[in-house]
Design a protein around this nucleic acid. Structure first.
Lengths: 117, 117
DNA sequence: TCTATACTAAACCATATGGTTGAGCATTCG
DNA sequence: CGAATGCTCAACCATATGGTTTAGTATAGA
């Protein structure tokens, strides 16, 4: 039952940092260079660059080198994988599905009662 | 634009470990004690206990102490918060919404053209 | 009461992380 | 050419993380 060798470790780890989440937010608007990604944060250029690489290694960002500038764009496939993982738990917070579940459980109990009788 | 002081840091960090994700998977089946949560993993009891506390601190698990055993149950509200965050990016991987977006963009361009003319 | 069970706490270790600074490498531009 | 720009790399630092072991507390049961 041990879960392993998906991208989820890297993706969730990348998302666990507010700077990196904000960077993704900016990339959702448009493609940005490393410099443009770095400027909003109170951080050295090199520090921001390391965050971008974490995002890149997680597959959340793709980089295109054009001359001396590195253009980054959002790559959402891995976010979709994270979303799929979360979907497994949707029924635990979705009221709609909760009541459906209750309904099905009630039916099961009714059937069990019939069998007993 | 700096994003901060949500639970997302703790939640995503908790989800970044495969042991902890597996534990949540088991808790999705039924409530479990620390011992039951620990046994599937090649890890010391104390090690597993630390993972449970990470999940608890992230608000993903609630603990009820009954005698000497600690019963844990899944608490999905924080997973819902993570899902809400991911939803912002849904349009980047959803084909349906992508084509809707293309449609709207085409309409915008048509309008822009009309204004120009 | 005496012992086994379920768990936490604390100390410790190796490695990862988030940040810095300074050097270096291409590329662009005057 | 020479200088400024955009970025990476390497070294370094403090702290966090994931794991261990040993010890300790409290409850359950014989």
């Amino acid at each position: 039952m041990v879960e392993h060798s998906t991208h989820l470790d890297a993706v969730f780890h990348a998302l666990a940092d507010p700077t990196r989440r904000a960077m993704l937010g900016h990339l959702a608007e448009r493609e940005l260079t490393i410099g443009e990604l770095a400027t909003p944060f109170h951080m050295s250029f090199a520090g921001a660059s390391k965050h971008v690489r974490v995002l890149e290694n997680a597959g959340l960002v793709k980089r295109t080198i054009r001359g001396r500038t590195h253009l980054c764009r959002l790559e959402a496939a891995r976010l979709a994988e994270a979303d799929v993982w979360l979907k497994r738990y949707e029924r635990f917070w979705s009221a709609k599905l909760d009541s459906l579940e209750a309904l099905l459980r009630a039916e099961d109990e009714a059937k069990a009662k019939q069998v007993k009788e």
